[in-house]
Amino acid sequence: MKLAISITGQTLDSPFDARFGRAASFCLVDTDTGSWTVHANPALSASGGAGVQAAQFIAQLGAQAIVSGAYGPKAYTTLAAANIQRFLASGHDGRTAADILTAFKSGHLATADDATHGGHHGG
């Protein structure tokens, strides 16, 4: 399956970014083959609705699941509507996207069954 992970850099070894809407980029990993690509998050500079924009973006990338640190209510709704599975990770689950991938494969990550916070109201 195609898994998106929010990160702050350019590679699979880049640090995990716990933010979703304002993550620097997303690492898209094929969990079957291990091949990966990195995509800059277009929502980083959004005035508002960053979570919605980021969710649409990873839907367009074809991701079937996402790992991030938190989801606002609009991001959550959009991801759910796109049938993208939502997983939660924290710094304890690993420092890099590769660590997060390992944790995901071992089934250690919790799923987000609701928005994790009330949103940021950025504009």
């Binding site: 005035s47 508002g48 609705g49 960053a50 919605v52 649409q56 609009k74 509507a81 049938n83």
Partner: peptide, 23 residues
């Protein structure tokens, strides 16, 4: 619609259109 909205108040994912009034 989602493409032109500068405020991401409307999203189209698959066969669903979402409108966020507060954005």
């Amino acid at each position: 619609c989602a493409e032109v909205c500068q405020f991401h108040a409307i999203a189209v994912v698959g066969q669903t259109v979402l409108v966020f009034d507060d954005l």
